[in-house]
């Protein structure tokens, strides 16, 4: 089993710079230009980083699931490197959104955390991804590690639709999905700019991390 050398870092570096620039602009608009929300006041400004983080996290989990499926069909370790990148970036985004959500929850719900369906299903996926990352550390054989982690990722990703629909299926303390159609038009611009910002940063992270994973795999296969 062989793996092609990684390409240059030019494209992800451009995406990273673009993502951070958009995040600075979107956060400035969200913090200093957009009006405070009627009931939540200033605390609602957390939405401009929390919601884009959740959207990009969900896309990252979808990408990780697709990488796992393609690896199992093609048996190409390039997709295992992408899977490893998706697992790590997905875990980072999930940890971030849990922290942002907890900070938003304290002044609005009165608690940092609640075992409500949305939060519980997110926690399950966070610990599942952490478990798969740990599993990869214990398996030395790259092809076996790739198969095991691909299967585990597919099983773990089944939780993502539960995360998405949990606020509709059950009586959840968490509000239903936020989108430009469910929030006031005054909040659209910073939300959209930050959504693209976090998305570009997430894509750049996955590209840079998969290059590291590819190089590590090539060293292991020599």
């Amino acid at each position: 089993m062989d793996i092609a050398p990684p390409s240059t870092t030019k494209t992800p570096m451009i995406l990273l710079a673009l993502g951070f620039a958009l995040l600075v602009i979107g956060s400035y608009l969200g913090l200093f230009v957009a009006p405070a929300e009627q009931y939540m006041g200033q605390v609602q400004r957390i939405m401009y980083v929390h919601v884009p983080t959740v959207w990009s996290w969900m896309l990252c989990v979808c990408f990780t699931f697709i990488a796992a499926v393609i690896f199992l069909f093609r048996n190409d370790l390039k997709w295992d490197a992408r899977l490893e990148a998706g697992l790590e970036v997905g875990t980072l985004l999930c940890a971030m959104l849990c922290c942002q959500g907890a900070i938003w929850a304290k002044p609005t719900w009165g608690v940092w955390w609640d075992w409500d369906p949305r939060l519980t299903s997110v926690a399950v996926l966070l610990f599942a991804f952490l478990g798969i990352i740990a599993l990869r550390q214990f398996v030395d054989d790259p092809p076996r590690r790739a198969v095991w982690s691909a299967v585990a990722t597919i099983i773990a990703s089944a939780d993502l639709p539960i995360v998405y629909f949990s606020v509709k299926w059950w009586n959840s303390l968490h509000q239903t999905q936020s989108s430009p159609s469910t929030v006031s038009s005054a909040f659209h611009l910073p939300l959209r700019i930050n959504a693209f910002g976090v998305f570009f940063v997430m894509v750049a992270f996955v590209m840079l991390r998969s290059r590291l994973a590819t190089r590590k795999l090539r060293e292991e296969l020599v």
Partner: peptide, 9 residues
């Protein structure tokens, strides 16, 4: 109504 909250933000 949630008042204050800049610290959380």
């Amino acid at each position: 109504v949630v008042t204050g909250g800049w610290g959380f933000v």
